[in-house]
Design a protein around this nucleic acid. Structure first.
Lengths: 250, 250
DNA sequence: ACTTAAACTTGATCTAGATCAAATACCCGG
DNA sequence: CCGGGTATTTGATCTAGATCAAGTTTAAGT
């Protein structure tokens, strides 16, 4: 048996604790700490409340929950989604390590969507009022928060467009691929954390259509897909399929 | 003949200049100044570079332009849009007085979309680096910038969902209605600044479909529409048509 | 291993909305 | 007031993708 990982009880565990500090986090360059120097980083670090692990199906927050913190995904992945009055689910996004969650709740001060773990996952919670104060004092932090929000705005806008099922799915795969690359994983071969149904809801397609387009892509030699495991065989061609959308997506 | 409006040359013009200060701007409560006290407001005011008028079809910025300022619409209206590699236009949003434009360009530091005046329109340009510095010093300004970005994120997410043509158009009208109400105009009766084609591109529908749904709404006694002039006859029923979407939209 | 349920795929239809095709209305410059 | 271009409406088809309907594979218990 391994020791429980959520209570540091040995020197080894303490070392592990240190490794989890922003300073030594591998997501450094993607996440809030980007561009921050040693001392500022330490100050940010004191705000961080590391939470989890959440297991598949666990909720990080739900519609209507009071907004208190924004979350940075540390490990695993989450989906954000809403359920409309007809009971239809709309997936708003998939969130990988380094992504921020909960930004849309700042204005109304309560959450507008649900966030559910797709995997065994953990987050860093950043209490928003403290973060806001700190961002007044550290211009680099302010800059990075704005950058990340701006990026979210741009990404969402891309998805909003009117595109074919092929374009959407190609963009989805290419987008995931570059996000994995940024995070140091293979951009050619990865596992989908989300179900076909989630992908379909995200891309505004029927599950069956997603399945069929996957099959078509495989037949055309663009990808190899077996259940959740995907290998991109012809990234250039996939990119050209979705260049109409500006190339990528999240 | 009236005097040119862009060069203050008389006491009257000076008065007009004062009226245009943030402090006395009617958009105060919607726009960046919200929640700012007298002195802070004056500081914000010194950043503002009032530009225009732009005439119908004029561009405020275009894809690829270097990002320098964010813009607050002062009068008139703009649309933001992209043109994809197939030449299809995708309208991202319509921007009324008090709305901010250009936020999605912060991250890449160049504009990702075009912004075009739909009417004779003016903006307040806020140089982003100065605004960023000032927002470090004035917490209320920081709060308001985050609120407005957060709102944009939430709005865009709503549009991204999978809804019928009726739901979309109803939400569009209801959204416009509440935005006009917020701005002190009639929520029941207004003029559309945008063409059917723009509406269609925004809602991911064909122009013909927009036309037909307008006709259907009119036949059902929901609205009266003549060219660009719209009167909402049954707001409650329109709202119930789009409640699936969470009620509104921009 | 056996059951049951969920996830996924595949095939057959159906349909909302796109596209194609005119006709009509409006607007603007001369 | 007139001619030509653009915006809008209306009608007739067409089609991408939805929906309906079985299968099939996988995973989790028991």
């Amino acid at each position: 048996m391994e020791a429980k990982t959520d209570v540091p009880t040995s020197p080894m565990e303490v070392t592990r604790g240190l490794r989890e500090a922003c300073m030594s986090c591998s997501l450094h360059e993607l996440c809030l700490p980007r561009g921050l120097s040693g001392h500022d980083l330490e100050r940010l670090d004191t705000l961080v409340d590391r939470r989890g692990p959440h297991h598949e199906g666990d909720h990080l927050f739900r519609v209507g929950d009071r907004f208190e913190s924004i979350y940075a995904v540390r490990a695993g992945s989450y989906k954000s989604y809403t359920v409309d009055s007809e009971g239809r689910e709309h997936v708003l996004g998939f969130h990988l390590p380094g992504d921020l969650l909960g930004l849309d709740a700042i204005y109304p001060s309560h959450h507008l969507c649900n966030a559910m773990a797709l995997d065994t996952s953990t987050v860093c919670a950043l209490p928003y009022d403290q973060l806001s104060i700190l961002s007044g004092e550290i211009s680099g932090l302010r800059v990075q928060i704005m950058r990340l929000m701006s990026k979210d705005l741009a990404d969402t806008a891309t998805l909003a467009g009117d595109f074919t099922a092929e374009e959407r799915l190609a963009a989805f795969l290419v987008g995931l691929s570059s996000r994995f690359r940024e995070r140091g994983y293979s951009p050619r071969e990865f596992n989908l954390a989300m179900s076909r149904r989630d992908i379909a809801n995200y891309l505004r397609l029927a599950t069956e259509t997603v399945s069929r387009v996957f099959a078509r892509f495989e037949k055309d030699g663009l990808i190899e897909v077996e259940r959740r495991a995907v290998r991109l065989l012809d990234l250039p061609r996939l990119q050209s399929l979705c260049e109409a959308m500006g190339g990528l997506q999240r």
